[in-house]
């Protein structure tokens, strides 16, 4: 019997964790273990980059939802020195935005579809398509704010590059209104805020789609079949430097340097704020 709950949802993040280290997958997604050790050093710089990255995503979202560019630029101008990255990225983005196709968009949208006995889910920064274009191309954009621009081979192997276009084929029909999407219609673009002129583009194809399907299905089957003792630690101990569970696995004490990180570490999503019983000090239960 599988250890996965029946309503388990796979994402590129969880699959990437599984590929990187089965144990990390188990601790993070099955046990949901909070383990707040340092992820990368220097901690303050790492934190600042994570926050700036999240703010940059929100900025673009505002822009794409119709908040005037001029108003957003005024806000950028008012930032102090701590906002220098964000200002630079914004300037770079505006140049890029002038060359990206217009039309219909899904901004910060989530798609999901059945995958085997489970569900596959992904959050997209931007999906863009134009109903009037003859070939009805659909482009997935992903904004990256990492200092380094990862090489193409490394990106090609990332689960994100496989999951995002694959899931769009599966679930894009309802959202785009373009009918059943074929892989050939889809392109995935990684745009790097620090390297605005050098986006990495991945065209999708039937062949790639089939390969991704087989790979992902194999992976999900494998995860589903594992027993309690099968979640082994990764053999590549360099990964443990950027894993907060390192102390639990006896794999070191200190975190690795942010300079060695190939791309963005995952940004946490903020929780909804809500007023409920938990937040009323007066209810002294």
């Amino acid at each position: 019997m599988t250890l996965l709950p029946l309503d388990f949802q796979f994402s590129q993040g969880s699959l990437q964790d599984y590929v990187d280290c089965r144990r990390r997958f188990q601790l993070r997604y099955l046990d949901q273990l909070a383990w707040p050790a340092v992820e990368a050093e220097p901690l303050l710089e790492h934190e600042q980059r994570m926050r700036s990255g999240a703010e940059f995503h929100r900025l673009i979202q505002r822009y794409l939802l119709g908040v005037p560019e001029k108003r957003l630029s005024t806000m950028m101008d008012s930032l102090g020195p701590e906002g220098s990255d964000l200002k630079r990225w914004w300037g770079n983005f505006l140049q890029f935005a002038n060359v990206t196709p217009g039309g219909n968009t899904l901004v910060e949208g989530v798609l999901s579809a059945q995958f085997g006995s489970f569900r596959l889910l992904a959050k997209y920064d931007l999906i863009s398509w134009d109903m009037d274009e003859p070939d009805r191309r659909v482009t997935i954009y992903d904004w990256k704010t990492s200092r380094q621009r990862p090489n193409r081979d490394w990106l090609a192997e990332r689960l994100q590059t496989k999951v995002y276009p694959y899931l769009l084929v599966q679930a894009g029909e309802q959202v785009t209104g373009l009918g059943k999407l074929s892989p050939e219609q889809i392109e995935m673009v990684y745009w790097f805020a620090e390297h605005p002129q050098e986006p990495q583009r991945f065209s999708y194809s039937d062949e790639q789609y089939q390969q991704d399907h087989d790979f992902l299905a194999g992976l999900v089957d494998e995860v589903g079949s594992l027993k309690e003792g099968d979640f082994h630690l990764t053999a590549d101990e360099s990964r443990c430097k950027f894993c907060t569970y390192r102390s639990l696995c006896d794999r070191g004490t200190a975190a690795g340097s942010i300079d060695q990180v190939e791309s963005d570490l995952e940004v946490e999503t903020e929780q909804d704020f809500d007023l409920d019983f938990d937040q009323i000090a007066e209810i002294e239960f």
Partner: peptide, 26 residues
Amino acid sequence: RNPGLVAGGTVDVLTLGGLAQKMVQL
């Protein structure tokens, strides 16, 4: 979270506080 759910986007589940936060942020 039912695996057999129709493929596509996701339903938003919000409270007034959550909706207000989302809209003010944007």
